[in-house]
Structures are given as structure tokens and as C-alpha cells.
Design a protein around this nucleic acid. Sequence first.
DNA 1: ACCTGAACACCGTTCAAGT
DNA 2: ACCTGAACACCGTTCAAGT
Lengths: 215, 215
Amino acid sequence: MSLQSVQEPRSESPLSRERIVATAVELLDAQGLDGLTMRRLADRLGSGVMSLYWHVDNKEDVFDLALDSVLEYRGPPQIVASQDWRGEVVHMLEDWRASMLRHPWSASLLPRRALGPNILSRLELLSKTLSRAGVADADLNVAIWSLWNYVMGATITRANFDLSDDGGAATQQRLARLSERYPRIERSRLLLDNDWDGAFRKGLGFLLDGLAPRQ
Amino acid sequence: MSLQSVQEPRSESPLSRERIVATAVELLDAQGLDGLTMRRLADRLGSGVMSLYWHVDNKEDVFDLALDSVLEYRGPPQIVASQDWRGEVVHMLEDWRASMLRHPWSASLLPRRALGPNILSRLELLSKTLSRAGVADADLNVAIWSLWNYVMGATITRANFDLSDDGGAATQQRLARLSERYPRIERSRLLLDNDWDGAFRKGLGFLLDGLAPRQ
DNA sequence: ACCTGAACACCGTTCAAGT
DNA sequence: ACCTGAACACCGTTCAAGT
């Protein structure tokens, strides 16, 4: 509060759950899932390793907190309360995917951990919107899980392909050797087409067509 | 070959890529992704740790080999060469999911690694079958990726939920506290419905409806 | 060609102790 | 209430050496 305490914000600010989580997200963004280490985390925070354990149960706890902190949903654009339920679903799911791609470690982590409050809120809202869009009660859970599966699969794949890719050169090479054995994959350029956003949106459209046929 | 060499099959058989991969799969099945350790692997094989590195580049290499070894596809049931393309797609994808669920670590691993020959064969065959089922060339890649996303999302989620579940007791408890904040999730029993196989099949049906409407 | 042990630079976490 | 260092039981991999 005093000028004194504000003066040295770097290494002087005390440890806290919030500061630990925020720094963990930074570290994960910079170094990936394997890059998060209790020791490195403590380093960044300017504290001893074991100090973390006062605020946090263990490393898994750090993962859970970092994950949920990244999944907040701010809601649909507030221009008008629209009647376009299908568009609203698309917006929600594209936002979800975008949030995870901003933190490429998060998608791989999400299915392994218990669901935190932010992701549960997203599912709750998705359920409501699907109902309004005309999905029958009996199909609701299947619809939610199908969309979950699609979004998770797409995002995990996208997040990991991008990282292991050295600009496509390695993939190109592999593909050359593959062309006789997998002619269709080669011909359709399945592994080289990199319009990920477009493919996500188009496939989501097909899935929604199946789940709630346009009347 | 001689009776002598067959006599002591346990610790006497020499190290080989095949033996290493087979044992790695055993270890992964028993202990999960984090349970695979070069030291533990060497223990099971009755060799020194560093002996492994003669046959294998590094731990990532072991993961790649173990993963692909688990993804072989034996083809559709040979009763009749059927005209039911849609049924064939469903069979292929259910078999793929089942193969991965037999080795619950495999699904989480697949999107992170370069695609091996067995999974590429599956994609090649999927492409052929979707074409025959009437998916337009322009939609083919989107269709393949959509099905990939769906299968991967479903299988990763399933494989991980089952493990972290202590019989549902923990989930039940969490749910109790959740019921006011997430009423729809609570009411539809989204997190408690455990007919995973049925949900997978039904959702896959919806997706296929969208991708290749039944004529 | 194939296998090995010692060594290095790391991990997460327990514990007993400090303020 | 909050932080710490030493110690334990682990990791993957390099290297120089053995047969």
C-alpha cells in the first residue's frame, strides 16, 4: 500500500496462489507441458522451491489451477441478443478452441483433469443453447459430448502438429516416401492442407447439420 | 533354435527392437504414460539401461514404436464384401477406438507424435471408403479430419475419465456441490451417464448424417 | 556388433527447522 | 502464518570402456 512496498514490485511481492498460477501459465506458454517444473516456477517467482507448497498441494494442483484460469468464457458479443442459436453455438465453440490455442498446452491437459468451474460453465451454457436450438432432451448429452469430442480432438491435434512442425519441411520429406503407399492421402494433400480454421468451421457445420438439422 | 536356447527364454533372449517395443507396451498398459521409464524398461528386459540405446534412439523413439505397434488394422469382417459403405466406416472407427482403449495411454499419445505407417493405412482406407460412400472430393479432407477429431476426442476423454474415477464416488460428491451452479448438467446427468459405447456410436451417426446424408 | 557402469544434470516431495 | 535447505528416491542421456 505504501509507496515503499510498491517501489520494488519485482521480487518483493509476496507469494500467493494467484501469482503462482499466473506465473505457471507464463512458464507453460513459454516452455510447454514438460517445461513446467516446480524448481523453474520457484525461480521465476524469486522464491525457494518449497515455499510453493504452502500455497499449493502439489504439481497436479498447479496444473489444475493453470488450466481452469485459461478457460474463462466472457460470453457472446453483446451487440444484440440474437435469435441465431446455431451461430451462438459456433461462436462459443470457436472461442473455446481459440482460448486453448492461445495456450497450446491446455487442450492436451483438459481431458486428463477433473473439470474446473470455468469449463463446467461453458458446458452449462452449451446445454442451454443446444436446447433452444431444437436438440431433443433425449439427444442432449450425446450432442454435448459429440461437440466436446470434436472440439477437443481438433484443438489437441492442431496444437501439437504446429509445434512438431519445422515449417513443413520434415513433413514434405516424409510425404515423398509415402506417396506410393498412401496415394489418396498424397493426392488430397491431407497432411499438408493447413487451413485449420476453415476445416474446423466447416466440419463443425457438418456435425451441427447432423445434430440439429436446419428447418 | 536349439533346445538349449529355447530352454531359458526368460532373461537369456537377446535384446532386440521387437522385444523392447513389446515390453514397452506391457509396461505402458500396466503403469500408464508416466510409468514408462528407461530404467524400468531395462529392468523388465533383464538388461542394463544403456543397452536399450543401442537398439533405440531415445525415449521418444520408444513411444513412437509402441504407439504404432498398437494401431494395426486387420480389415473389415470378411463375411461378405458388402456395399454398406457407411457400416464399413462405422466398423473402422469403432475398431480404431477399441484398439486405443485396449491401451489407454495410446490415444493421448497419438496426436503428439508423427503419424506412423499403421495409422496412415487407416486414414488411407478411410479416405477410400468415404469416397465410395458419396463424400465429394472437395469435402474429403474436412470429412476425414472431422472423424479424426471425433474419434480422438472421444477416446482420449474416455480413456482418461475411467482412470481418474474411483468408482464415481468422487464425481458424485463434486456433483452434489455443483447442482445449484450447473443445474442443466446436473439434471441431464451429463457427467454420470456412463454408456460411453452407446454415446460414441450415436454421436458418430449424427456426424455421418451431416457428412454424407443418407439418400 | 552389442552391452555396460559411472557420472551429470536434472526431477517432485518429505521433513525438520527457521521467522 | 509463511518460508527455507538438506536430503531422498528418482529421471534421461553422454561418455568412455568393455567383449
